[in-house]
Structure formats: C-alpha cells, structure tokens
Design a binder for these strands. Structure first.
Lengths: 349, 349
DNA sequence: AATCGTAACTTAATCGGTTACTATAACAAA
DNA sequence: TTTGTTATAGTAACCGATTAAGTTACGATT
C-alpha cells in the first residue's frame, strides 16, 4: 500500500506562517495562544484533514494515555461485561484501552504484558489466567513503576492494587441459604485453590459449613477449572462415586451449566433430585429451566472500580499506596435453591 | 507517579561500545550484524531489562503493526466470539489489535475511527452500529489509503472490502425448512432494513416465501433492532394484533430470546402454539428449553477472514482491489422448527 | 524615562527508534 | 597490483510531536 503522506503540524504552520509549536499549542487550547490564532489554526487543521500522530505525541510527552488490560477470555459473560464497563469508564475519562486476551495461557499473558509495556501504557489492569503461578513479569512491571491493578483474579504480589469480589462472603451467603432451606449434604465443585477466587469461595463454603456444624465430606469437594467442562466432569465424578450430595455449590456459572448438562444426561433432575446454586451469572439465566439462583457479581462496578483505581494511581506523583477494593455481591433468587421438602404433595411451585 | 527512566538502545550501545544502529539491527536480527555481536547485544539487552518503545518505533518506521477494530458491542455472544477469533488470528500473524466499542452509537464510532487513525493503524476492521448511516468518516479512512474491511454489518462504500455471512441464503434456508415442515403462516421479526444484515435476511425470507407461492402479510413483517427487547416488542405487536402466525423467523438470537420471554409471559407455548427459528446462536442454546433450531454463523471464520483480508490488503503495495468474502452458514437442528402436525397423538419426539 | 509584566509567539532540544548512505577491512578475482 | 566483493559497522537525517527556555512588543507602573 502506498499511503498518502499525512498532514502534520508543520503543514498547518507553513500555511499560516506561524511556528509548529504555535499550532501544537493552539490545538491543545494552550493559553499562550490568542483566541483568533487558535480558531484560525483549528479551522485550517480541519480543512487540511489533520489527524494527530499519537506515536509522536506519546514519544515526546512520554505518556500514552492508554491503560493496558489483560484478560483470560472474552467470549464469556463475566469478562465481556467487565470489559464493556472498562471501555466505557476509560472512554469517559478520555483514556484509551489496549486490550489483550491471554486465552488462559500464562505464556501469552507474559507476552501481552511485555507488549503493553512496550506501548508504555500508563497503567495496567490484569485478570490472571487459571494457570498463572509465576509473578516475575508483574514484578518487572512494578519495578518500572507502572501502576498495576489486579482484577477479580489476583496474584499476591506486593505493591499491587486489587479490585475483587467478596468471594468468601458471597460463597458463605450461598451456603447459608442452602442450609436454611433444609439442605445438609452440600458439595462444592470449585476452582483451583491456588487462585484467589477458587480459594476464597472454597473457604466461604467451609466456614459456613463449620459454623452450622455440618461435616465436609472430602469427596464432596472437587477442585478444577472454571469452565463448563469442569462442571461436567465434576458432576460425573460425584455421580460415579455413588455417594451423591443433595446440593451443589458451583464456583462459576459455566461450571453450573456443566452440571446441568451432566445431570440431564444421566437423568438427575434439578432441582428435585439435586439442587444447585452458583457464583456469577449470565444474561441468559432467565431462560434457563430452572433458572439458577446465584450470587451476583456486579461486573459493571468491578470494571469501573478497576479503571478508577489505576487512574487514581496514575495521578499520584509519588510512590502510590496499594489499595484493595472489594465489591459486594448480591444474592439473586431464581428457581433453584428453594425450600427443600415442602408439605408433601402440595408444593406450590 | 515518578517513573524510572526506561532503558534505551543507546544505553545498550554505550555499554557495548557500539553504535545504537548496531544495537537496533542486532535486536531485529538484521544480517548486517555478526552472530557474535548479535548475541552479545541480546544478552546485554536482557540484562538491562530493555523494553522497546513502540511509539518511537512506529514513528520512525511509519507503521504501527496494529489493526484497528470497531465493534458495536462486546457483551454479546456473536461479537465476543468474533473478537476472540480476531485477536487470535492477529496474534498468530504478529499483529496487535486496537479494539474499540461503539456501544451502537454512531457518534462514538466516529470518534473511535478517528482515534485509530491517529494511532496510525495499518488497517481497519469495522462492524457498524445499528444507527450508522453516514459514510463520511469511512471515506476519510479510504482517502488516507488505509485498508478498510467491513465485517458482518457493512456500509456500502466504494473501495472497501467486506466479510459477511450469506444472510440471504441462510434466511432462505430457514424459511424453506419451515415450509417443508408444513408451516404456511410465517412471520419475520427482522432488523433495520437499512443495514445489510437486516435487509438481506429479510430478502431471503421474501424470496423463499415467493418461491413457494406463499403470501407475505404486511403485519407479519416487523422491522426493528437486533436486541432482546426488539424481539419482545415485536412479538407483542404480533400478539396484540390478534392475527397470529404459526411460525416466526427471528433476525438474531437475542431477538428470538425476546420472543421466548414475551411468549411465556402471555402463555403462548413454543414450539406448540408458535414455532421459531433464528439467525445466529449462543453457547448456551443447548440449555434453552426448547433449544432453538438456528442458522449458524461461523464466528471464528468470520473473524479470521476479516483479519486475513486486511493483512492481505496491507501487504499489497499498490492500490488494492476491494474484495467481498462471504462465509457460508449452516443449519443446525435443535428442538424448534420441527415437523408440524405429525400423526395425531403419536408424535415421536 | 526606566523598569516591569504579560500576552503571544518562536527557537532549540529531545523523545527513542529506523532508514538510507557511507566507511573499512579482509579476501578473492583478474 | 588493481579492482571488486562481501561482511560488518558507523554517520547523519528524520519521523511528528512536546517541553523548556527564550524573544518581542506594548501598555502599565513608578
């Protein structure tokens, strides 16, 4: 492709017989330049079809006005919602977003962080992959003094800020509801224990169980990934053991869907034979039969909080104080996790 | 924030007592530089923690190695899937993606295109908003000789390439299936006629109907947006008219979901009282009761084809030839749009 | 009248690379 | 010996902005 040369500040300057600095300042509304000159410059810029060159601007000003984002997935209700919020919040603050997708692959994640550093992003928002264990690359980010905010899925690295969901509290709330509805045999199909959301949701489950003096059967706690397939496998493991619980707390919405799929395959009816609750949701939940009762993660708040927090850090001139923002969850009642054993043969559905 | 100064080529050069050009070339594996020097340079770069400065690189090389993308939505199965494919395909070709989200807002869309031009993206992939009618900004892109590929939702602009789905053919296929299953009273809740996907799916419907000599009732064709709410409203309009069809072809999956919601609200049973088919799907379709039979849009192919096409255009040295790639659809049978009126009281489901 | 302040610009340097030439040495070919 | 190649590296200019540090003119101040 042969490109037409782009219009530059100098082109405008030449046309008006002023210096390019004058043009630069005028376009940025700098008070040095008189009203008339400014409007003249703007007029000519428009006529010539001037488009600023961000590379040049970033290079000389040493900032990109961009926030780098690394997420493990996009085609997933939780992340796509959060990302939409991030874009919107950044847009409202006149910041650009450089989004990258790690595909749950730690190596890609590392590459992306390097790319974003090369772009000299002003700050970074990261949600780590399922498999991320090494924090070296993030230490490198910190050593460059680039504000780093972990979102939802965090790695314990000193000096980083975090925006998370109250995983423990939300999980406990889910279990409390199940118990108050009469369930005792409660299983948990959870995520990896090495990552905060897996660990904390599991702990919330454990705490609530203990609080009510309920035993935690080792084979009723299954740890794995956060996807549909993990839910499917988890259910099958429980099912094949022949030792079925009456209730399952699923670590994510996709995991719950996997449970639905597996259950329907082997003829286990939800919620009659087995009841379920889960952490997170999706827009289509209302079309699910039965619709899942769930612990809602306010994706919009999460995204906005993450952006606000990096921006805050970017604004701080000195070493910034790491901060931990925790977003509260809300229990949303739908068709599952309902009262167990209503008056026999008189259940008013 | 006070940032540490970044390591530059000159820092490495000084350390090794060579010129920065040598370093630059070495790092890029230029044959000018000997094996030993190259590996020495790379070693020192590593030790010093060198991170290239993309702004500087882009500025002097006059290319960004980035493809700009503008989509109307993210938190939507179709787009999030396409975007994931776009990211992946770009990654495999060593290109970066600059993603922007217009939120179905033409004004934002325009701003985003301007930003991407300012970033000097090497090419552009755009899926327009529902409301985009003005092509001025896109003409501007073309006048700069920046390859522009419209994806899925296209605007008729000379000189642009397109990657679309065979909307007309897919729609016709859906109608054919309905007719072959015995339906005659077929309605269409469609999108805006001003935009290709709305227009072509509508035309596919019309053609198939005409081909089979079936009348098209004016009040059985409803044009609107592509969201859930549009489906809900569309159904309600049909319902309130008292003149109900026996079958609806929905222009998108969300529209079909809206129909489901409205139908269940007023007690119309799907597929018994009213049967439905739609264009597009979502990963959760299998959990829907009844699961929708649909015209599948191969999102992965779409995304990859779009990237491949821009890259092809970017690679062309001369004026490029606009190209139109059409991705084929696949009819996927699920629980709806099944044979009507099977042998009475003997329907083998 | 000398000094000052300020509005409105301009000059020069710089950001961190890349590109297009140029230079040098070593060795081969003639 | 002369000329030609080739491998390897260096020089200088430039990409298109921004920033810091001057200028200039002119009315105000004392």
């Amino acid at each position: 492709m042969n490109r037409k040369p782009h219009v530059t500040l100098s082109d405008i300057a030449r046309q008006l017989n002023v210096s390019k600095v004058t043009v630069s300042k005028a376009l940025r509304g700098h008070p040095d330049i008189s009203r008339e000159t400014t409007s003249l410059v703007k007029k000519v810029a428009e006529e010539l079809g001037y488009t600023p060159n961000f590379a040049a601007r970033n290079l000389s000003s040493r900032k990109s006005n961009t926030i780098g984002v690394v997420v493990p997935k996009i085609a997933h209700f939780f992340f796509s919602s959060v990302i939409e919020a991030i874009y919107d919040e950044a847009f409202n603050n006149n910041y650009d977003i450089a989004l990258t997708v790690s595909q749950e692959n730690a190596e890609r994640e590392k590459k992306h962080v390097e790319t974003l550093m090369a772009m000299r992003v002003d700050g970074l928002i990261v949600s780590i992959t399922q498999e991320t264990r090494d924090s070296a690359i993030f230490e490198k980010v910190l050593s460059r003094n680039i504000p780093l905010v972990f979102m939802d899925r965090v790695l314990p690295v000193d000096g980083t800020s975090q925006v998370t969901v109250d995983d423990k509290g939300g999980a406990a709330q889910a279990i409390e509801l199940a118990i108050s509805n009469g369930y005792r045999k409660i299983a948990h199909i959870g995520g990896y224990k090495e990552i905060n959301i897996g660990k904390n949701r599991y702990e919330g489950y454990v705490e609530a169980m203990k609080k009510h003096g309920l035993p935690i059967e080792p084979d009723w706690v299954i740890h794995g990934g956060f996807g549909e397939d993990d839910g499917y496998q988890g259910f099958m493991k429980l099912y094949k053991s022949g030792h079925m619980p009456e209730f399952i707390f699923a670590v994510t919405y996709p995991v719950a869907l996997g449970i639905y799929a597996a259950a329907s395959e082997v003829g286990v009816r939800i919620p009659d034979d087995l009841d379920v609750i889960c952490f997170g949701s999706a827009s289509i939940n209302k079309f699910l039969k039965p619709a899942l009762t769930y612990i809602d993660q306010p994706t919009d708040n999460l995204g906005r909080a993450a952006v606000d927090l990096v921006l805050e850090h970017i604004g701080e001139t000195e070493e910034y104080e790491p901060k931990h923002v925790e977003v509260q969850t809300v229990l949303v009642m739908r068709d599952t996790c309902i009262k167990k054993k209503a008056a026999p043969a008189a259940a008013v559905k």
